[in-house]
Design a protein around this nucleic acid. Structure first.
Length: 954
RNA sequence: GCAGGGGUGGCAGAGCCUGGCCAAAUGCGACGGGCUUAGGACCCGUUUCCUUUGUGGAUGCGAGAGUUCAAAUCUCUCCCCCUGCACCA
C-alpha cells in the first residue's frame, strides 16, 4: 500500500529544496500561467482546486516541454464581503460560525475575525497552505494582496491611464439599496445571499376621469395596452396621491415607499384602496374610459400597486373579472379585447391537449387547454400565464391597427417607445425578485445613484480593440469563444466605484473605493515585478516607475532619480516584465467570462502595447460533490485540506482537475477517487513485478505494447496541448492499466519493455499526479525529478497499425468463439472440449478486398466470370467459379461495412497459433488452428478473412 | 425574454467538428463465476430485444422531418434542462 501523506510531503520538500518552481532565467522560452486570484473571505473547499489545478497542470506540462515557467499567486480582498464577514462574526452569526467550524478553524481565530484585516490575512495564509499541500508549483515569492499600499499605487497608476485615455464617464445608475443602512447592497449583504435583481418596467399613465391626476400602472407587457378593459387595485391596501416631476399619480403606499429612492416624489394625500373604486380612468392609448375594480391578486408592493387588466391575454385578469361577476359585484359589461392572435397550446405537444386555433379570448382558451378554469388555484393560473406569455411571445401576431402582424417582442419595444416619447408613460426600476431583505432586516429597494463613475466599455473604438485582441487569442476550450463574443457585444457602462469596502481609493473622488472587479484586471503584470518591489517604500512607486517598466516611457536614470528607486531594481523590473509577459495563459471559471475575463482583455488593450496583450484564456467548469452543486445551504462542502488528507493529493487532483473536460463540471465522488487510487496502485505494484521479468527477444505482444505506448504519447500530447485533461487522463491512466493487463495476460514478460512503458507513464502522469510520478520515477531507478524531465517524444517507427489490428483480430476471434461456445452449450447442454479455428484461404482474401473496395458485388461477379481479375488466376486449379460466386454473394450483404484485410492466410494462421495458449486460457478449453484447405470440417467453407470459422468439438 | 452550453445505454460520461470499422470507449452499478473460513479487495465474464449448431437480425443516441448508398454524427423545426443577464465577488 502506498502512503500518500508521507510521499507527498517528501516530494514537496524536495521540490522546494531544488527550487524547481522558480525558473531558470537563462532559458529563452518564457511562459507565464496565472489563475484568477482567490478571494480571502473563506477557507478553500475542493471546488477551488479546479482552476488553480488546471493552471498547475499546464505550468507543469510547459516546464516539461522546455519552457521556463512562472506560476504566481496573490490574494484578493477588495470590496465589501470581508467587511460584511467581519460584521457577521461580531454579531456571532451562527450559520457563519458553523461553516467555519466545518473547516476546523479554532475559536480564538474566529474571535479575532471581527477585524477584517485579521481575517483577510488569516485566510490568505490558509489558502497558501492548501495550495502548497496540493502540490501547486507556485512561485510564492511574488505573492501580494489587493489591499496593500504598493498594490494601490499600481491601481492608481492604472486609473491614471484609463482617465487620461477618457475611459471613464459619469451618470446615474440603479442599485439595490438598504434604506436603513443607507448603503448599496449586493448578494453578500442580503439575507440568504440573494442577489437583488433589478429590471426596467414600463409605467403607463391612465388619467383619472375628471381630474388632472393619473393612475400609474406598471407592466411588462405594454403592447397589451390596447386590450385594457379596466384597472385593478388592492382594496385592502393604502394608496397615496403623490407628485412626481410636476404631475400627480395614484400609486400604492408601499410602491411609494419603494419608488422614492429612484425619483423625486412628494406624497400629498393618503387613501384607502376602496376609495379609488368609484373612479374611472382613461386609456392613454385609445382614449377609452375604463372602470377601476378590486383585483384579488394585486400586491401593493409589486410595481405601483395598480394593474392594468387585459382579460383577453392574462388568465389572472380574466379570472378576477369572472370571480367578481360571480360574487355579484356590480361590474359593468366587460368584453375582453383581443390584441394578439395565437394558436393556443401549440407548443405543449401532448396527446391530451389539443391546440385551440385563433380563439377570441386566448386567456380563457389557455385555461381550457390546460384543463383548468377561472376558479382554480393561483399556481394553475400562474402556469397558464407563463404558457400564454411564452406562446404569444414566440408565435403570436399583433392584430392592433398600427402594429398589425408584428411579433409580440417587436410590438412591445415599439409600444413602449411610442408611449414614452408621447409622455404617456415612463420607465421605473423594480426588484424582480422582491422582497429581498438586507441582513439588517430592512427590505431592499432600488435606488438611483447619481454621479456614479463608470468605465465606458461601450466605447466603440475600445470595444473594437478588445475584439481584435480576442481574434488573435487562443481560447480553451475553443467553444467558449462564442460566449466571449457575446460578452464583448453586451458589455457596456460598468460602475467602477463604491461608497465603502476595502481597496484602493478612486483618484478622481477620494471618498470612493475602486470596485473589486475593476481593480483586478491587470494585476497579472504586477507578478512579474512584485518580488522586486516588495521592500520598497510604497511612496516610491510613482506613476513614472510603472510607465517605464510597463510602457517603456521615459528614461531609466530619470525614473530612478525621481522615484528614489535603485537603478538596478528599475532595470530588473523592466527586464522581468518583458521577459515574462509575452506568453501568458489566463485561467478562470466560466462565471467570469462576462465580467473579469472580458474586462481583463479590455484593460490590457487600453494600457499595454499589443505585444503584451493576452495570448490565451482557459475556462474550466466547476466541481460537483456527489452529483450536487456544492453549497453552504446543502452542507455538502468538502474542505480541501480534509479531502487531501483523507484521499491523497494526486487521486484528488485526478478526479477534480482531470475528471471532466474543461468545459463541463467535474464530479467529486469517493468512487471516482478510489478508482484512481486503485489504478495508481497497480502501476506502483507493476514496478516491483519488474524484477521477476526476463529480457528475451521481442515478441509480437512486446511490439504491441510499444505501439500502444508510442501512440499514447502522441495522443496524450495532443490532449495536453488543448488541455483536454479528461481525455489525457483516460489515456494515460485508465487505458495504460488495461494495456498492461492485456500485455501480461497475453504472456508479455519483458522487463525492459515494461520498464520503458512505466517510465514514460511516470512522465505523462507528472503534470496531473506529480507526487506519484516522482515516486514512480525514482522507483524505476532515476535520481532526478520527473517534474523537470523532458516530456516524452513518441517514436513513430514503433507505432504499428498492423500489430495492433492483429491483436484486435485475436480479441474478435475470442469474442466469436465465446458466442459459439455459449450457443453450443445451450443447445447440447455441455461445453465443447475443444474449439477449432479454421482460417480462410488466400483466394477469399483477394475477392474480399475487391468487394470491400468496390462495394458492388454484382460487378465483381461479372469480372470474375469474364476472367478479368488477374490476381485470381493463380487459384484457378483450387476453386471453381460456382464456389467463388457463392462466396461473393455471401459477403455481399455486408458490403457496406467490409474493410480490406491485410493479413495473408499464412500470417493469420501464425497469429492465431501463436495466440493459441492465450486463447485456450481465456476460453477455458483446448483450441487448435487449421487451414481451410486442409480442414475436413463441414464448417470450413464458412471461414472469412480475419474471421475464422469456428467448430466446436466435444 | 435575450445570450451561451447541453439532452447518448440502469447511472456517469466519450463519440458529433472530419458521416461508414458504433449496439456505441471508459468508469460505476447490477448479475453470474473464480479466489476466500466469510466479507472486502482482486481476477474473469454478462449487462437493448429477438434469434441461432454457428460468429446473425431488429430496434436504437430528446421529438419530428430532411440530405445521403449510408446519420448519434450534417440541415431544418419543435420540446426540455443548465448557466449568465452586471456594478456583485
Amino acid at each position: 500500500m502506498m502512503n500518500y501523506g508521507s510521499m507527498e510531503r517528501r516530494w514537496q520538500e524536495e521540490w522546494e529544496k531544488a527550487k524547481i518552481f522558480e525558473g531558470d532565467p537563462n532559458n529563452k522560452n518564457a511562459y507565464m500561467v496565472t489563475a484568477a486570484y482567490p478571494y480571502v473571505n473563506s477557507p478553500q473547499h475542493i471546488g477551488h482546486m479546479r482552476t488553480f489545478g488546471t493552471a498547475d497542470v499546464l505550468a507543469r506540462y510547459k516546464r516539461m516541454r522546455g519552457y521556463n515557467v512562472l506560476y504566481p499567486m496573490a490574494f484578493h480582498a477588495t470590496g465589501t464581503p470581508i467587511l460584511a464577514f467581519a460584521k457577521r462574526i461580531k454579531n456571532k452569526d451562527p450559520d457563519l460560525i458553523k461553516e467555519l467550524k466545518l473547516f476546523h478553524i479554532p475559536d480564538e481565530d474566529i474571535a479575532k475575525m471581527t477585524d477584517p484585516l485579521y481575517l483577510a490575512n488569516y485566510f490568505a495564509r490558509e489558502i497558501e497552505r492548501g495550495m502548497h499541500l496540493a502540490g501547486f508549483g507556485i512561485d510564492w515569492r511574488r505573492k501580494f494582496i489587493s489591499i496593500e499600499p504598493r498594490y494601490s499605487k499600481f491601481i492608481e497608476w492604472q486609473f491614471g491611464i484609463l482617465n487620461a485615455g477618457k475611459r471613464l464617464t459619469q451618470g446615474s445608475h440603479p442599485v439595490g439599496w438598504c434604506p436603513n443602512e443607507n448603503n448599496a447592497v449586493g448578494m453578500h449583504d442580503t439575507k440568504h445571499d440573494v442577489e437583488p435583481e433589478i429590471d426596467k418596467e414600463t409605467s403607463i399613465k391612465f388619467a383619472v376621469d375628471g381630474t388632472d391626476a393619473f393612475m400609474l400602472c406598471t407592466t411588462y407587457r405594454p403592447e397589451t395596452i390596447f386590450g385594457v378593459t379596466n384597472l385593478f387595485v388592492d382594496v385592502n391596501a393604502k394608496y397615496v396621491l403623490c407628485e412626481i416631476g410636476g404631475e400627480r399619480y395614484y400609486i400604492s403606499k408601499a410602491a411609494a415607499d419603494n419608488l422614492k429612492y429612484q425619483m423625486k416624489m412628494e406624497v400629498l394625500e393618503e387613501h384607502d384602496g376602496k376609495e379609488l373604486l368609484s373612479r374611472s380612468a382613461i386609456n392613454p392609448a385609445n382614449g377609452t374610459k375604463v372602470p377601476i375594480l378590486p383585483g384579488y391578486f394585486v400586491k401593493e408592493d409589486i410595481g405601483t400597486g395598480v394593474v392594468m387588466s387585459v382579460p383577453a391575454h392574462a388568465p389572472f385578469d380574466y379570472a378576477a373579472l369572472e370571480r367578481l361577476r360571480a360574487s355579484n359585484y356590480p361590474i359593468p359589461e366587460i368584453r375582453p379585447i383581443k390584441v394578439i392572435d395565437v394558436e393556443v397550446g401549440h407548443s405543449i405537444g401532448s396527446k391530451d391537449a389539443k391546440p385551440i386555433f385563433h380563439p377570441d379570448i386566448p386567456a380563457l382558451a389557455y385555461l381550457e387547454v390546460l384543463g383548468t378554469n377561472v376558479n382554480s388555484v393561483d399556481d394553475a393560473l400562474e402556469f397558464a400565464t407563463k404558457l400564454e406569455y411564452r406562446e404569444e411571445a414566440h408565435s403570436g401576431r399583433m392584430i392592433v391597427p398600427g402594429y398589425e402582424g408584428m411579433s409580440e417582442p417587436e410590438a412591445r419595444e415599439k409600444v413602449r417607445a411610442d408611449l414614452i416619447s408621447a409622455k404617456k408613460g415612463f420607465e421605473i426600476y423594480v426588484l424582480t425578485n422582491s422582497p429581498v431583505y438586507c441582513r439588517c432586516g430592512f427590505k431592499v429597494a432600488v435606488k438611483l445613484v447619481e454621479n456614479q463613475w463608470f468605465l465606458n466599455y461601450g466605447d466603440r473604438a475600445w470595444k473594437d480593440a478588445a475584439k481584435k485582441a480576442f481574434v488573435a487569442m487562443r481560447i480553451l476550450p475553443e467553444k467558449s469563444r462564442k460566449a466571449f463574443e457575446s460578452a464583448l457585444d453586451w458589455i457596456d457602462l460598468r460602475a467602477v466605484v463604491r461608497a465603502q469596502g476595502l481597496g484602493t481609493r478612486f483618484p478622481l473622488d477620494n471618498d470612493k473605493i475602486i470596485e473589486s472587479l475593476s481593480d483586478s484586471t491587470i494585476y497579472m503584470a504586477l507578478y512579474t515585478i512584485s518580488h522586486l518591489i516588495k521592500e520598497l517604500d510604497p511612496e516610491k512607486l510613482k506613476p513614472e516607475f510603472f510607465d517605464y517598466v510597463f510602457l517603456s516611457k521615459g528614461d531609466i536614470s530619470e525614473v530612478a532619480k525621481s522615484t528614489g528607486i535603485d537603478y538596478e531594481i528599475v532595470k530588473k523590473a523592466k527586464d522581468s516584465f518583458e521577459y515574462w509577459y509575452t506568453y501568458t495563459s489566463r485561467h478562470s471559471g466560466p462565471d467570469l467570462i462576462f465580467n473579469h475575463l472580458t474586462m481583463y482583455a479590455y484593460n490590457h488593450v487600453a494600457i499595454f502595447p499589443d505585444k503584451y496583450w493576452p495570448k490565451q484564456i482557459v475556462v474550466n467548469g466547476s466541481v460537483l460533490s456527489e452529483g450536487e452543486k456544492m453549497s453552504k445551504s446543502l452542507g455538502n462542502i468538502v474542505p480541501l485540506i480534509d479531502a487531501m488528507q483523507s484521499h491523497g493529493v494526486d487521486p484528488l487532483r485526478f478526479v477534480i482537475i482531470a475528471g471532466a473536460d474543461l468545459f463541463s463540471d467535474s464530479e467529486f465522488s469517493y468512487d471516482a477517487v478510489n478508482g484512481v487510487k486503485e489504478r495508481l496502485e497497480y502501476l506502483y505494484n507493476a514496478v516491483s513485478g519488474l524484477e521477476s521479468m526476463g529480457s528475451e527477444e521481442l515478441k509480437h505482444i512486446d511490439y504491441w505494447l510499444y505501439s500502444k505506448l508510442n501512440r499514447k504519447i502522441e495522443s496524450v500530447t495532443e490532449s495536453m496541448e488543448l488541455l483536454e485533461l479528461r481525455a489525457a487522463s483516460t489515456e494515460m491512466l485508465y487505458n495504460s492499466i488495461l494495456e498492461l493487463k492485456k500485455y501480461f495476460a497475453r504472456g508479455g514478460n519483458n522487463g525492459m519493455v515494461v520498464k520503458e512503458y512505466l517510465s514514460a507513464s511516470a512522465l505523462l502522469l507528472s503534470p496531473i499526479a506529480p507526487h506519484f510520478a516522482e515516486e514512480l520515477w525514482h522507483m524505476l531507478g532515476n535520481d532526478n525529478f520527473a517534474s523537470t524531465e523532458r516530456w516524452p517524444e513518441s517514436d513513430q517507427s514503433m507505432i504499428s497499425d498492423k500489430v495492433e489490428s492483429e491483436e484486435d483480430l485475436v480479441d474478435k476471434v475470442i469474442a466469436d468463439a465465446r458466442q459459439v461456445s455459449e450457443m453450443v452449450k445451450r443447445k447440447g447442454g455441455k461445453e465443447p472440449a475443444k474449439l477449432k479455428f479454421i482460417v480462410a484461404q488466400d483466394w477469399k482474401r483477394v475477392l474480399y478486398n475487391i468487394v470491400a473496395q468496390q462495394k458492388a458485388p454484382g460487378k465483381v461477379i461479372d469480372w470474375l466470370k469474364a476472367g478479368e481479375i488477374k490476381e485470381m488466376e493463380q487459384y484457378s486449379g483450387q476453386v471453381d467459379i460456382g464456389t467463388e460466386i457463392e462466396y461473393i454473394t455471401g459477403i455481399s450483404k455486408k458490403r457496406a461495412e467490409l474493410r480490406p484485410v491485410a493479413l495473408t492466410h499464412e500470417e493469420e494462421m501464425e497469429l492465431l497459433s501463436e495466440a493459441g495458449t492465450y486463447m485456450a486460457g481465456v476460453l477455458g478449453c483446448e483450441v487448435s488452428v487449421e487451414s481451410e484447405s486442409e480442414s475436413k470440417s463441414e464448417k470450413a467453407k464458412r471461414a472469412l478473412p480475419g474471421k475464422p470459422s469456428i467448430e466446436a468439438v466435444f
